[in-house]
């Protein structure tokens, strides 16, 4: 009898937590796969405007980005609004070259669906945006998306 008693005296048995780490690791890998670490380091300040009528960009691999805003490295690029293509400051004339390279790196079949996402700072004047749009038209990159953040209906006009 004494033998059985000694077994019961241990209190609540410890829960095995060994598999907990496996579950967390699974989460970790899941997040690592679905998220992307931003490819381009921004060298212009971009705070995109807000809007309500948004559409998602369907295929990320078919999007090329053009950033426009005030440069963060003033000693390199001056204080005016600049365009960033890939990792460097560029001018409007570089866009044709940039688009050609972007097209080359995609499959033949996908090239027509290539969308250009314009990430333009909200303080920018339309002049430079108009120049970019003319250039895009010239090189037949007609699908564009003005990148925006989601706004609440009520807050949209509060900035005025």
């Amino acid at each position: 009898m004494a033998r059985f008693k000694s077994k019961k005296s241990g209190g609540v048995p410890a829960i095995n937590t060994g598999s907990m780490s496996d579950i967390i690791f699974m989460f970790l890998f899941f997040f690592m796969v679905i998220t992307t670490i931003r490819e381009n380091t921004l060298i212009v300040k971009v705070k995109v405007p807000t809007a309500t009528e948004l559409q998602k960009l369907e295929k990320k691999s078919l999007v090329s980005y053009i950033y426009v805003g005030l440069p963060t490295k003033k000693e390199l690029a001056g204080s005016g609004t600049r365009i960033q293509l890939n990792d460097q400051y560029s001018t409007v004339d570089d866009i044709g070259n940039f688009l050609a390279l972007e097209r080359q790196s995609r499959d033949e079949a996908d090239r027509r669906k290539l969308t250009t996402s314009l990430k333009v700072d909200m303080e920018t004047k339309m002049g430079i945006v108009a120049d970019i749009k003319q250039e895009l038209r010239k090189f037949n990159a007609l699908l564009i998306s003005y990148s925006t953040r989601k706004a609440n209906e009520g807050k949209l006009f509060s900035g005025q």
Binding site: I34, T36, I37, R38, Q55, L57, N140
Partner: peptide
Amino acid sequence: LLTFFLLTSSINTDKGIFRKLPPP
């Protein structure tokens, strides 16, 4: 590690207003 990755990476939800430019 999980929280670290959650904070550093971004689920790239690029949204915007779509337009089709007219041809040249």
